[in-house]
Design a protein around this nucleic acid. Structure first.
Lengths: 145, 145
DNA sequence: TTTGACTCCGTAGTCAGGTACGGAAGTAAG
DNA sequence: CTTACTTCCGTACCTGACTACGGAGTCAAA
């Protein structure tokens, strides 16, 4: 582990994590990112852990977790609420698995669609798209909750 | 195909699609759901196709597509822009596939977590959660766009 | 030691995706 | 024909996740 980038300012941190200062502050307000102590009347500094945390938040979000859920996932980190953590992780696992299942269904449908759609010269022959409806509408019995 | 439920009112449609009247109207405003002609001074009626469309919208949304994207997917339906449609579907497919990959990574991590987290009596022993960071933070190079 | 960029912090605005409200008009049951 | 329930349509409001703004303080290079 390189100790190179220790003590970044929030601006540098933002660049490192490919996000914006205001977004980081927003996460801090929401308790997702720690607000480091600031040296008397000085400026707060951040390290690589903050970068990693921001990456994690962005990844989890991209995968469809809300910031609230991300917060829960992040609680698993401290290792102090092991039982809770396991329960939470099990829940998330269920979540993740049904998302995967749903996406795989969509993958199959889209793949099928792309496969059939070899009708470059005859638009009339491209009606299989209708399967988008039927294939998917019976997919998730009970989306989310 | 049963022709049973022809000519539902918007309220019935909402129930059938397990959604709300106002949501349907919102989709109509966004052009995702057709507004049928109304008989002079009467009330608009909807059929099974509308139900299917609403199911589709909800499924696609649940899978992480925005209403704007859902709109694009729905354009595939008329079969008149076959090339465009295929391109669009290919894009979505790429999207879907990387989401699946990301979620599978998360699944593995969570599964591992749940497996290791057999430390009901010793919280200190639960530090593997850190893998959430490292496993995921190098996952999607370029989330969304 | 001044200047320009950056930080801090609070508050306000934005955008997506709904959700709620309210009055007028349609409709169905008794 | 009245009463109760819907529909219609417009506008306003709400939540989540940012994004922008402004004034005061900090810091580092010239």
């Amino acid at each position: 582990m390189p100790e190179a980038t220790k003590s970044m300012t929030i601006g540098t941190l933002a660049k490192m994590a490919d996000t914006h200062v205001e977004t980081i502050r927003y996460y801090q307000r929401r308790g997702l990112v720690e607000v480091p102590d600031k040296p008397f009347g000085g400026i707060r500094r951040y390290d690589e852990k903050a970068v990693a945390r921001l990456h994690f938040i962005r990844s989890a979000q991209w995968l469809g977790f809300s910031l609230e859920e991300v917060g829960e996932l992040l609680k698993l980190e401290d290792g102090t609420h092991c039982d809770e953590a396991r329960t939470l992780a099990e829940h998330k696992l269920g979540d993740v698995r049904s998302k995967i299942a749903g996406l795989q269904k969509m993958e199959a449908t889209l793949d099928d669609l792309v496969g059939r759609c070899r009708c470059s010269r005859d638009p009339q022959r491209c009606p299989m798209i209708h399967s988008l409806y039927t294939d998917l509408s019976d997919a998730p019995e009970n989306p989310d909750t």
